[in-house]
């Protein structure tokens, strides 16, 4: 199952994109309670949203974003049937991508 959930909604000629990603977003200063070792940093660095293949949003982030990050963006126009692709890359090189069609 993909780690990304996408919802879109048409709002006064714009399209609101909401996304929820499941990711630990560890900043590397938390300790594992059982082993008492530091949990290594593991966070999303870049999030991109493509609208019909064209990059609409690039969002760089650090570990100051909450666990299981939620984002909302507002796309100018956007029509039913348009394709939205969201992908992320984290500091360990993991990637994920999800497609969504505006309804």
């Amino acid at each position: 199952m993909s780690s990304i959930k996408i919802r879109t909604k048409r709002l006064d000629g714009n399209t609101q994109i909401r996304t929820l990603i499941s990711h630990p977003m560890e900043h590397g200063r938390n300790k594992d309670k059982t082993t008492n070792q530091l949990i290594p940093a593991h966070f999303i660095q870049v999030l991109t949203v493509k609208h019909n293949g064209k990059i609409a949003v690039t969002c760089n982030m650090g570990a100051g974003v909450s666990k299981d990050p939620y984002f909302a963006f507002l796309l100018k126009d956007g029509n039913p049937g348009d394709e939205i692709v969201i992908d992320w890359t984290d500091n360990l090189g993991n990637k994920d991508s999800e497609k969504h069609t505006i309804s």
Binding site: T58, G64, Y70, F73, L74
Partner: peptide, 25 residues
Amino acid sequence: QNPVPLALQLNISPGIEPFLSARLK
């Protein structure tokens, strides 16, 4: 006051409105 002050940076392309919603630590 965060250890890493910068939380996130959004690049505004011509295709989006200046709007952002997120959750921070």
